[in-house]
Design a protein around this nucleic acid. Structure first.
Length: 301
RNA sequence: GGUACCAUAGCUCAGUUGGUAGAGCAACGGACUGAAAAUCCGUGUGUCCCUGGUUCAAUUCCAGGUGGUACCA
């Protein structure tokens, strides 16, 4: 029996959760979340996790599964999601992957190269070096350790350079020797559904949703996590802006405006990524019936 | 109703001694393989309110109109 993974993607605030539940209900199946922030247990309001009723309606996976203290990443997600899917496909012929984390979705559909997890000590020492000696010194080191990658990497992007260096240092091999751009084969067929709507409407939805988050108590949620602000999981829209407010760097009003702006920019970044995915099939968020028909037609081909 | 001032990018505003214009914010486009809601790169997007006039040339000067603001009635 052919197995299908339906990917439901789209920008933040477009309505993936609701549409996903309707589709899952129609196919009597479960939802695997593909969201790098909703996966954290301590984050609720700011990440707009599905509500209790929604979670009761359809079984969700990877919602608030790990602590923010956990070092989570796209590779772990790839492995765990594939394990989970192979189990779920014993019960179902069709599973829904719902989320907006581009790299996580890509990891499940296409795979990413196998290489070691970054050692936190090495990463921290490279961060120190960046801070004290500047990006140029990291570039210089990369040029020595991995000239191939040096020639193709964005030399202005410290994260890329640090990651390549930490792999070189940990393994004694050039980072580029791990990069094979595999298109891994999967034991299921992927059908990608993208949700989008008029940009102005999307912005209104995002702005409104941020106001609702504030009403729901986002400030308190963030304040309770303030002491952990150094964690990567909290380098997240909705939290870091409030942390700046707690530190007296800005007012609450300005922090809220920044949450809205940064959410809009995040949505644009997601659209840039998804738009360039030629496998994506685009719909408006209220076209649930059309989406279901589209999926059924694809499956019966 | 009268007088004065204003009208330029989505917003707030510069500016052009007459040669079709630029800042901030917002916005938009792109890159992307273990930090990805991260990180990085790029882009002015304009009927200079409208209609006439003067001029080789008007967003700029002049007249009228429209809209706004303030004051006087």
């Amino acid at each position: 029996m052919q197995k299908y993974l339906i990917v439901l993607a789209g920008p933040t605030g477009i309505g993936k959760t609701g549409t996903g539940i309707e589709i899952a209900r129609h196919f009597n199946t479960e939802i695997v979340s593909s969201d790098s922030r909703q996966i954290f247990n301590e984050l609720t309001i700011g990440t707009a996790v599905p509500g209790i009723e929604e979670l009761n309606a359809i079984k969700h996976h990877f919602i608030q599964t790990y602590s923010i203290k956990e070092n989570y990443n796209a590779s772990r997600y790839e492995n765990e999601a594939l394990d989970l899917l192979s189990n779920l496909f014993k019960k179902h012929d069709l599973i829904l992957l719902v989320g907006g984390s581009m790299l996580y979705i890509d990891a499940v559909c296409n795979g990413i190269d196998i290489m070691p997890d970054a050692d936190p000590d090495i990463r921290n020492s490279l961060k120190d070096k960046l801070e004290h000696e500047g990006l140029e010194s990291l570039r210089f080191q990369l040029k020595k350790l991995d000239p191939d990658y040096y020639n193709s990497v964005d030399l202005k992007n410290p994260n890329r350079i640090i990651h390549a260096l930490e792999i070189c240092i940990m393994t004694g091999r050039p980072y580029s020797s791990f990069r094979s751009h595999p298109k891994k084969t999967r034991p299921f067929t992927v059908i990608k559904i993208g949700l989008n709507c008029d940009r102005k409407v999307l912005h209104q939805r995002i702005n409104l949703r941020v106001d609702k988050m504030i009403e729901a108590g986002l400030e308190t949620e963030a304040r309770n996590l303030f002491h952990l602000k150094h964690l990567n999981a909290l380098n997240t829209v909705g939290y870091r802006e409030l942390f700046a407010f707690f530190e007296g760097e800005t007012t609450l009003e300005k922090a809220i405006e920044l949450i809205k702006r940064n959410s809009r920019r995040y949505a644009r970044k997601q659209l840039t990524w998804f738009r360039n995915d030629i496998e994506m099939n685009w719909f408006e968020p209220d076209q649930t019936n059309e989406i279901i028909t589209f999926i059924e037609n694809r499956i019966s081909e």
